[in-house]
Nucleic acid binder design. Sequence first.
DNA 1: GCACCGCAGTTAAACGTATAACTCAGCAGG
DNA 2: CCTGCTGAGTTATACGTTTAACTGCGGTGC
Lengths: 351, 351
Amino acid sequence: MARTGGRGGPTMKDVAREAGVSQAAVSLVLNDAAGSRVSSETRQRVLEAVDRLGYRVNSAAKSLREGQSRLIGFVGDTVASEPFAGDLVEGAQDQAWVDGHLMLIINTGGDPLIEERAIDSLLSRQVDGIVYASMYNRRLKIPPLLREVPTVVVNGTAEDGSLPSVAPDEYTGGLEATRHLVEHGHERVAFINIAPPESMLPAVVERERGFVDALTEAGLRVDRTLVKYGDGDAVAGHRLATRLLKRKRRPSAIFCGNDRTAWGAYLAAGELGLKVGTDVSVIGFDNMPVIAPHLRPGLTSMELPFAEMGRRGVARLLSGDTDPTVELLHCPLVTRGSVSRPAGPASGTAS
Amino acid sequence: MARTGGRGGPTMKDVAREAGVSQAAVSLVLNDAAGSRVSSETRQRVLEAVDRLGYRVNSAAKSLREGQSRLIGFVGDTVASEPFAGDLVEGAQDQAWVDGHLMLIINTGGDPLIEERAIDSLLSRQVDGIVYASMYNRRLKIPPLLREVPTVVVNGTAEDGSLPSVAPDEYTGGLEATRHLVEHGHERVAFINIAPPESMLPAVVERERGFVDALTEAGLRVDRTLVKYGDGDAVAGHRLATRLLKRKRRPSAIFCGNDRTAWGAYLAAGELGLKVGTDVSVIGFDNMPVIAPHLRPGLTSMELPFAEMGRRGVARLLSGDTDPTVELLHCPLVTRGSVSRPAGPASGTAS
DNA sequence: GCACCGCAGTTAAACGTATAACTCAGCAGG
DNA sequence: CCTGCTGAGTTATACGTTTAACTGCGGTGC
């Protein structure tokens, strides 16, 4: 109605005219300037005019003037491929929202060229910072452009250790998963890892280190023949678990490097007439919502703190925390029914 | 180096000075203005200067001047809760990128208050349009603020039919899933839907309509006792499939309203000594990547076109297609090993 | 010889905001 | 009475672009 130009809603000028003050006064009111520079009476008039006209600040103008955008960028190699990736995005966005920022998301598919162009567009949007996210925890080569803006690496670490990062504490995860089994009285514990250690992935190397340490601290011998390497798939889990469970002195518990592998172990156990949670204990990793709660019995699993990583990454970014330290986030244990005391003569007091 | 102010990189003014031309000339070069207004020699000098200084356009200034931001908003009730939700986001973002836009993402958790504030921030960012996404296909009440900007509803429809929308073609999905079974020779086909029809969800009502029509067009009687309603969970699938498969004239095939239900049916079949894909055929819906390929045999399932919905939604938005029509996207059939010809005397030519 | 045109730019204004610098009235202190 | 100060605004400028309007100038057409 009482609008000057054509496109876009009313501006401060319109509000000013409506309230009978200067445009600057409107700005002062709306930004609650240091000290009460305007009388509460004028303030009232301005706010009424704002309401009446449905005025909304133009953030392009504001950003231009202020030199910052209250925008952050989220650059990921894949937003969707992994089913839990959404949590990372959601956690990051939630935190950004809480801190008064909006989040621009770009997924690059891992293509370095797209990645460079993505960061470039973010920079030209004057983002206040960038979350550089990997969909699985690994050491990342950092695109040079990222040096131009505050950046936090999430679910990964900078190859050269030059950027702050937030990653899951795989070691402690492996440690506590194994401890959980040991505390239930298991002494022959197998481990089906998700890839061979040569892969150098933290998820592989660190969880295994945790596994070994947990057994060692409990005074148990680490039987190398009980450690297997699959590819993280249910098929591999099935195959390797079968092999383990067919041994004459079979393990009483299996730590699986992820939930899909654990699922395979369930199938193997079933085929061999063994009940998971009774005849053999199983613990997983990832706590995938579409798998772990649906298995019978429910799968006890270590949860990867994706949402929390997203939140912490953004929180560090916006707090200006630029120390290139690696923040490791705890992987909580989610217990369901798949772990119990070992059955048979091996356990506790003689029956 | 050759920079005027402090914050933020070099501006056009800096480039102009470096190249010995006016700032306007730089703009003309960089925007490849209609017709070659500048000599290729000057253009060269400018581009070199741009390179040398590492100039990058300030999009805040550009947006302010142009009145549009090349930004779109993505408002969803939950980005992560459903494992496939990421595909929706990814598809939308990919398409936005292709069309030269960046995407602001906000998840509201379904809270109408947050939703309103979210849309408000997007509007103040001058977004060129908004994708309003639901995480499951349903009829949505449209927040009034969305009327102020081009909007496309994705994975849902506007309650009052007032907005363009993109949704999965549930009916055809149900139709083709059932046809697939019928074409394999099944005549007694059961259906475990994911909720009772009273729920009014398109996924429930339309798939069932497709189921009925497919049987009818094949001249088969629809046996109402073979239609069951669960809650979409594996437990319900297990329970209902058990009941179905225990009947004396058991169905030779089960159409499951989603993959988790189908998983339950697998378990039920296993317990009853029936092999899926041999003794009983099963088809699912959703084609969940963490389930369908991992079941033994792999689960044949109808795929929900999430990524495609995201893409089409954005494409419509940016093409200025504002007809409030509902675009239904096909759900492709993904065949694995869970459907075959019915076993036993009931099938084909007498043994 | 002169009006006219296209080329290759330049100058200047605008987009909507935040804020430094200013104005102006009223009042206190000396 | 004059100075200085405070409160409540106003004026004017800058942020970095885009673009309409303008300027010179060398070449054409007649």
